[in-house]
Amino acid sequence: MSRLTTRLVQALAPTTVASAHCDIPCGIYDPHGAVLAAQTVAKMVELIGALDGTSPADRNKFIRCVTVKEQHAEIVKHEVQVIWSDYFKPEHLVANPDLHTKVWNLLKLAGKNKQNVDAEAAAQLQAGVKEFADIFWSTKK
């Protein structure tokens, strides 16, 4: 009788698990913050390019855009660095042997975006961060 009950319970128990929050079981790493920050950098470059006035309002907006560009390029650096140093483990390097070089270039690219107003560099930053995010997610599969 008890064997029947056990089998019945086993048959009824769910086979799929959905998580309510993934922080504690899987760590709190997520490259989405870096992706968003890189998007913001590109958007700021675009906004700065669209400004040509010398009115106080335009100059004010110019300075605000530059500030936000600086801050978000710094967020890209921080987010990428944290995932790189804290999340990635030696076994991840087997599938991604050039990870260190890629991260190094990405951090330099973020610096370049701080120094310049360069749409191409901003696009490269977005592409680089996306690639980094793809590598991150590929290790979760």
Partner: peptide, 13 residues
Amino acid sequence: VVVRQPASGRLVI
């Protein structure tokens, strides 16, 4: 609802 989390594909509620 149960959804596949964007990017990761994890099942989440």
